[in-house]
Simulated scan of single mutants.
Amino acid sequence: MPKRDKKLTAAEVALIRRWIDSGAKTARPEPAELPKGSSGITEEERAFWSFQPIQQPKVPKTKRRDRARTAIDAFLVASMAQQKLRFSPDADKPTLLRRAYFDLTGLPPTPEEAATFLADTSAEAYDHLIDRLLESKHYGERWGRHWLDIAGYADSDGYSDADPPRPYAYKYRDYVIRSFNDDKPFDRFITEQLAGDELARATVTNATAVAVSSPEKRDLLIATGFLRMGVDGSATDALSDRDAVRNQVVADTLKIVSTSLLGLSVGCAQCHDHR
């Protein structure tokens, strides 16, 4: 068993012993071996909720139309009614202002920006505020950081104590920020990061020429920095097993891609091929 600070209690050990003595039955029968060509994935596993196609749910009907101002509100009203809960009172304009600024840009409003919003008494005042914040360059800086966290963005290799810098990593960071600020469609955003070199028709021999041929193609090549964000010690001097280090870089890259896009880790496949 894994080492731990606290050992199993006598009752816990006895419970495990009883389970073993009773045949160590699992929740369902486990096959002794899998048929050739079988993925080993059962229909029950395929039916897991997160693997189902996205569907458009029916918006619940509610009598609280004063609170259900959007479709999302309708779902909240229906759920809260079941639990006998109610919405809190509407926030006042200064509170809404600060929430919107910190949420969308991560920065507080300036006195001038606050005065502009508070002086706008139109019904569209809040909509106008959100539009202004979405057009701010700080929006991409605020929300792009979440994708950079997912991608494992770092300005250095992170493999050894020397931790050599990645002098051009910032170009990928700026690409992500621009993509958010340009409202780039998500499918395009992902495609560029996975296959920007293919879209730009770049090869090992012509990559530099392609990069300088146009800003658009340069951005496509920069986008593939997504695939170079993992910890990388392959360029470290005096490696005892360079092939093993390269293999680990590939494994870490696959982990980043799978967890960010599939919501699953395929780390088990690094050693196993039976699932």
Rank of each mutant, 00 (worst) to 15 (best):
T259W: 00
G140N: 07
E30R: 13
E192Y: 06
E198R: 13
G23Q: 06
A235F: 08
K217A: 05
L15S: 12
T110H: 01
S79V: 09
D157C: 09
I54F: 11
R142N: 06
D161M: 10
I16D: 06
W147H: 05
L8H: 10
D131N: 09
I72L: 15
A91I: 06
S156P: 00
I256M: 10
A11G: 09
H274P: 01
A27Y: 05
Q270P: 01
T224C: 03
T116Y: 04
V245F: 04
S88A: 15
G152M: 07
S38W: 05
I177D: 01
S258L: 02
F189K: 03
L8V: 07
I41E: 09
P94H: 06
K93H: 11
S39T: 15
R98Q: 13
R28T: 13
R67T: 08
A47N: 14
P94Y: 02
Y159C: 07
L76Y: 03
W49P: 02
K61P: 03
D73V: 02
A202M: 01
W49V: 14
H146N: 05
F87R: 11
L85F: 13
P165E: 07
T253E: 05
G40S: 09
D174F: 06
R98M: 07
Q82T: 14
L8Q: 11
E12W: 00
I150A: 13
C271K: 12
V212H: 10
I20E: 10
T259L: 05
V257Q: 03
T121E: 15
I190E: 02
V212A: 11
I190Q: 01
L15C: 08
D127V: 06
Y101N: 05
V231T: 15
E43W: 11
I222D: 00
M80K: 12
A115Y: 02
A10H: 08
R173Y: 06
W49S: 12
F48Y: 12
A114T: 10
Q270E: 14
T205C: 03
M229S: 09
L239G: 03
T116S: 13
K6E: 14
H138T: 10
M1Y: 13
R65W: 08
F186D: 04
G40I: 11
S234A: 15
S260K: 02
V77C: 04
A91P: 00
L220Y: 02
A47W: 06
F75I: 02
S213K: 01
T70Y: 08
L133F: 07
S50V: 11
D157Q: 11
V13S: 11
P215G: 07
R132N: 10
L96C: 14
A202R: 02
T116N: 04
G263V: 04
